[in-house]
Design a protein around this nucleic acid. Structure first.
Lengths: 334, 334
DNA sequence: TCAAAAGTGTTATCCTTACACCCATGT
DNA sequence: ACATGGGTGTAAGGATAACACTTTTGA
């Protein structure tokens, strides 16, 4: 009949906020994880999760303010760059229906990506920076194609795809099997495919829970396929990594991960840590210089091992002055 | 034992879903609008809005299912391609606090983008396809630089920016004033800038409401600056247009707006209607052909006016077979 | 003197841009 | 015949990818 907005009689919903907080430490991309304590027993969770908390509409005017507040509270440090990732609202993504009393709230979680130049040791207990390759060991192609792909996935995925050609085609392209080329941006697709294939421990856990069983221990195979996380946090983390890998190519977000002064090699290592692929030195520098992203300071950093490297700073002023730009990824071909 | 989040003692939140549904009609990009009826008086709203409804966690497993259901209900047609845009949770974006009783719910709205090849006449009353240039008249550069920019904005924005150089720099770049080049993707930035500058009627309305006044009639100036919408729907629409203009360049989403068979000129006109800029014919074709996005059918469409045009179809199979690709926008320079 | 990392020069190739032109149909 | 839109060839310029090489430090 008339386009009457469906009645706004509050069905019970709670907003959760989750943060994928990324920093660089010793040339590795690391992400902030927490092991939340059980409210009753005060025992820390065996699985890590992302910093998260509920959004209190009475206390915070915006999601971002709420997020900054509880991240500071949980980890005692301040977020810099922040952007919204995605809102996850699927049923079963958190507590399954069985665990929810009648009328219990559906938890909807809004994921955010945060970048900081300083992987300061968090003083908070049960908080740690973990390299994201711990959660996605197949994502690091900087040194070589991960052996995991051919040793574990190449046998396992065809078994799952069975006779379904389109499933196998998806798997083949996602994981660069069978001659397909690697696309570093598709982190989320890869995680979701493993989840569907039952190769992520979270899948078995969620299924067991939905059936009312106690979640079993992770299968042996899964141990090789990255550390699982609480709830759907590994999916949110994958979303963050996908977004960051995409964005780094067309917006100068890398600099949010750099200190005020840095060498071009450090910048390149940072991009490589994020993208998970090796870059071609000269061409990388050419791009950075042509785009005027950076300004030499005339000073040098002597602690690099060989010849001292010139220090540069990000020309933050171009953020306002340029319509859109970023780095391309001049891939190093073997 | 289970990861216990920060206390999830349900603060009251309601999830609203809004849809930016885009189609092409006679070479124009059009968007689905509704005029919701007042629940009490049953009078249709004077301002148009996007199709929207509340998300019922009991009735729908996912946002997307909820969205599809109420769009079909309100407009009697089925959505095809759908993707999530952004989740808007700022206070004051809908009803301001003053209007909310104590303990009333905060409305958080999850915006979606939907694309359909068929701008079928919606049989539902108070539902209409509107060209989006009605809401953003400065966005259509297909035929010429819109006169509005130099006649209305070029005088008004410096007055607003006053002595703040960085504000003026933002405005200059956003609206291609004073020799700056136009970037068609920045639709959201432009709308938000106009809102901040008080040149969008919504800004005055929201301010008046926050102060407890009755919203005044839109200022005369604003009439030239695009039709206002309900609540923050024009912001959501701008978000959708920005996303679509960006995405069209690196993913073959245009084809979601095309019928099964089409001529290359029709395809080009569609891209132009979305991007709002004119494209170079030969180069556009070269890109489409080089990427193997399309396959000639050998048949022709005689109703084009001049020489009959060959009909093509989208090679949907490449969606699975290719890591990522899309169209670039070979701009036509005057 | 050698290892290690910084930094430079140069070329082939491909993509983009731009120009000018021919083709098939309806009136 | 001519207006209208469909469709093609080709060359200049710029960005990228790949080559190999020099420079400056510390051990």
């Amino acid at each position: 009949m008339t386009p009457q907005p469906a009645p706004f009689t509050a069905p019970s919903v709670v907003i959760g906020l989750s943060a994928v907080v990324v920093a660089i430490r010793e040339g590795e991309a690391v992400v902030l994880t927490v092991r939340p304590h059980d409210a009753v027993t005060d025992i820390a969770s065996p699985l890590p999760g992302l910093p998260f908390g509920s959004f209190d509409p009475a206390g915070h005017r915006t999601f971002e303010l709420g997020l900054r507040a509880f991240v500071t509270e949980q980890t005692r440090f301040q977020l810099g760059y922040v952007e919204q990732l995605y809102t996850f609202g699927d049923e079963g993504r958190d507590a399954p229906r069985a665990e929810m009393g009648a009328g219990a709230a559906r938890i909807v979680s809004v994921g955010y990506l945060g970048l900081t130049p300083t992987a300061v040791e968090t003083r908070a207990p049960d908080t740690a920076w973990a390299p994201w390759s711990a959660f996605f060991p197949w994502e690091d192609w900087r040194h070589a194609r991960p052996a995991l792909l051919d040793q574990v996935l190449a046998p396992a995925l065809p078994r799952w795809a069975a006779d379904d050609a389109s499933q196998w085609s998806r798997a083949r392209l996602a994981f660069a099997l069978d001659g397909a080329t690697w696309n570093e941006e598709r982190v989320l697709e890869r995680y979701e495919l493993l989840y569907e294939a039952g190769l992520a421990p979270e899948a078995a856990r969620d299924r067991a829970r939905a059936d009312g069983h106690d979640p079993a221990e992770p299968a042996a195979l899964s141990a090789a396929l990255g550390e699982p996380m609480i709830s759907d946090h590994r999916r949110i983390l994958a979303t963050g990594l996908s977004r960051l890998r995409g964005k780094i190519k067309y917006r100068p977000v890398v600099f949010e991960l750099m200190p005020a002064e840095f060498t071009l090699s450090a910048l390149q290592r940072t991009v490589e840590a994020i993208a998970g692929v090796p870059l071609h030195k000269q061409n990388f520098r050419r791009v950075v210089e042509r785009e005027d992203l950076v300004e030499g300071l005339g000073r040098q950093d002597a602690d690099t091992g060989g010849r001292p490297a010139e220090l540069f700073r990000f020309r933050r002023e171009i953020l306002a002055a340029r319509p859109a730009m970023g780095l391309s990824l001049p891939l190093l071909r073997d």
